[in-house]
Simulated assay, not measured.
Amino acid sequence: MTRLMRIEKWCLWGHVLSMAFGLAGLLWVMPHPEILDYLPAGSTLYRWSMAGGGVVYILLGTVAVALYLRRTFGWQAWLSFMIPALAISLSSELSGTSTGFPFGDYSYLNGLGYKIAGLVPFTIPLSWFYVGVSAYLLARGGLLGERMTWVRQLAAIATGALLLMSWDFVLDPAMSQTAMPFWYWHQPGAFFGMPYENFAGWFVTGAMFMSVAALFWQRNERLQNLDREQLMVPLIMYLANFSFAMFMSVGGGIYVPIFLGIVVGAAPAIACWWFAPKSSTADADPAAQLPPMPVMEMVSTPAGVSK
């Protein structure tokens, strides 16, 4: 196993675990600060988590997905998605925070890192990238197959944009209404504080950078007929971030977006993975293709031995 593959795994599972750590802080410790008295260095860890926890988990997710794309499909596939995703999503966010178009009238608070132009945290376009490419790869795997007609291409882009929008279905109400909100709406909308135009903005923004990537990816044979093993990392990434949003919503007593998100997001994502071709190495249990937790790898691999 190469050093970059080890870094990819550490970042992937670090991303998942840091989200769980952040959930514990927001939903468990914040309402009950007396818990910190019983934890070693509890107050210090809590301050670190609140000050930079959001930045850390987003950076870990970005590195994990970037290394996965480079390893699985090549550096051209990675950059031809990442660059349009960052540029288009940042443009939409800057427009949204300064003019209200296309998402509505909102502003970011602190907690997600340095703000570009004083408006958009630098981590926001990164989250569009790694969740967006995970959603699009799942859609491609479930819908394209070997026959890449233009109808299927459009269906994959629309499905990927829908999966991305569905994540925000669940995330936005919780992250803007939690005890420590990360953004707020100047004019709260009818859907649990969100304006309905926000959904259209998410769908169109995602569809735009997915369409650009689809044009660049046409000649890459490794991106055709994706199988379940290749899609395992995107599935983990999408479901982990969806679960984070879901638990945040549960903690805030917001349930309707969860059910809608499951119907149009989590369930279709799993279905796309399931309908992708079964990989040749996944003969029995698909779960066996999950990247192992680094701690398990350390226990099973003697020091100084690489696989």
Rank of each mutant, 00 (worst) to 15 (best):
M82K: 00
L45G: 09
S127F: 11
A20F: 10
G53L: 04
L143N: 00
A77I: 07
V131T: 03
A66P: 09
P268Y: 02
N110T: 14
T62F: 09
Q230H: 03
V65W: 02
S306M: 09
L39N: 04
S280G: 11
M232Y: 02
F209M: 03
T281R: 15
W273H: 03
D283M: 14
T178D: 10
A156K: 02
S43V: 07
G42R: 11
L69T: 02
A20E: 08
S89G: 04
A155V: 09
L137K: 06
Y57M: 12
T99C: 12
I35Y: 14
W217T: 05
M232N: 05
G113A: 03
L109V: 04
R3E: 11
M232L: 12
S127K: 13
R147V: 04
L290Q: 08
N110Q: 13
Y46Q: 01
M210D: 09
S134K: 02
A269H: 00
A179N: 04
A276K: 06
R140Q: 12
A266H: 01
L23C: 11
D283E: 14
G53D: 03
A161F: 01
L119A: 08
A200D: 03
V56M: 05
T62L: 08
V233H: 01
A282Q: 14
H15Y: 08
W150E: 15
L26V: 11
I88E: 04
E146V: 09
T149D: 15
V170G: 00
G201C: 00
E93R: 06
W274C: 02
Q153S: 13
G14M: 07
G22Y: 05
V299L: 12
W185K: 03
T178C: 06
P40Y: 13
L26W: 14
L109K: 01
M30Q: 13
A156C: 09
M50H: 02
T281S: 13
V256A: 06
P125R: 06
P294K: 05
A282F: 07
R6L: 12
M237S: 10
G42M: 12
M208Q: 04
G189T: 14
G304K: 15
L27P: 07
G22H: 10
A284H: 12
L215F: 14
N241H: 13
F247I: 07
I35S: 08
M148K: 14
L26E: 15
F101W: 07
F242S: 04
F244T: 13
V204D: 02
L27M: 15
N241F: 09
R152E: 07
Y108M: 10
I116W: 05
L290F: 10
Y106A: 09
E297T: 12
Y57C: 08
L171S: 11
Q218T: 11
L164M: 15
L69C: 06
F203K: 03
L154M: 15
E34C: 08
W150F: 10
A51S: 12
F182L: 14
D283I: 14
M50L: 07
G42P: 09
A214F: 11
G96N: 01
G118D: 06
A158E: 04
E221M: 11
A161I: 00
L223V: 13
L290T: 12
F73A: 13
S49C: 05
P188E: 05
F209A: 03
L164I: 11
N220K: 11
L27V: 10
D285W: 10
D37L: 13
S176E: 00
Y255H: 08
R219H: 11
V263E: 01
T159R: 02
T281H: 12
L231H: 02
